Simulated assay, not measured.
Amino acid sequence: MPDYAEITYRVADHVATVTLHRPEARNGYTVRMADELADAFARADADEDVRVAVLTGEGSDFCVGADLSQGGFDFDETGPGAHWQEPAGRVSKQVFAMNKPVIAAIRGAAIGGGITITLSADYRLAATDARFGFVFTRRGIYPEGASAWFLPRLVGLGRAMDWMISGRVFDAEEAQAAGLVHRLHEPERLLDAAYELAADLVANTAPVSVAVTRQLLYRMSGVDSPAPVHEVDSRLIASIPTNPDAVEGVLSFLQKRPPTFTQRVNDDLPDFLPWR
């Protein structure tokens, strides 16, 4: 386990908790935080003991955005052909690629990179005191974290245009009404609610099925025709007779007992998936 300076990482009950940990700076986002987050999510994805990851922030704010007081970002100065990647995207891309669901638990301010890093999570739970803002145009800069791809898929192009063009800050109720946030909770209940959701996923879902379903939605929901999706679906459904988790899922339902799924994400993902 590496020593993290700006986040914390722990695993308990098959849940990895990744916490932004710069409360003295309201969890201001830095390059080091970005790289530590990307490392932590890659670690969680590779660990078979981890079934779900919860992303949260220490203190009363999730993240107020980039903390440029730390000297700015590590811009690559080798020219336009360089392959430098901005820090928010380092995290959102890692979460996008994961085979484990990610629950973001957001309270207080989630501004700029503090919201874009959560857009590739599977769930965003927010406290009633949460505030959101894609404030880039008000700083003369540009959206990052691949947010121009993720946000319209979550809330529609019209709402994404409103929030991103205006750069205005909006409250938790507006975020929930638009579909950015799944559920609202009182601040003192937020993390408990995230762990309750994680526990339900751990107890009642099959890890390989979750991994395949998560990536089907992300990788194939935007294709131009249902035909290629149906091709993948057909191969997946055809594999059911030799799939022990499918047998267990049906038996546990018929026998009215909790399922015990045995397939492992690292070993048992179908080889024919087009994104593998």
Rank of each mutant, 00 (worst) to 15 (best):
A110H: 05
G108W: 03
L125W: 05
E48V: 00
I111P: 03
I115S: 06
R32Y: 06
F73T: 05
D47I: 02
K93W: 11
A66W: 10
G72L: 05
G89K: 01
A34E: 01
F132A: 01
A104S: 13
V31Q: 15
V102I: 09
G71P: 03
A82M: 08
D76A: 09
L68N: 14
I106H: 08
V64R: 09
T56I: 04
G57I: 01
F73L: 13
T78S: 15
A40E: 01
R131I: 08
I117P: 06
R90P: 05
R51C: 12
S92L: 10
S120N: 14
A53E: 10
D49Y: 09
G108T: 03
D122R: 04
G71I: 09
F96D: 14
G108S: 05
I115H: 02
A109Q: 11
A66C: 11
V102C: 14
L55P: 01
T30W: 01
T137G: 11
V91C: 12
E77I: 13
D74C: 09
Y29F: 15
A109K: 12
A42L: 15
P101N: 11
S69M: 10
A130L: 00
L125Y: 09
A44C: 12
A109H: 14
E86F: 07
D67F: 04
L37R: 03
D49V: 11
A40F: 12
A105H: 00
V135L: 11
G89H: 06
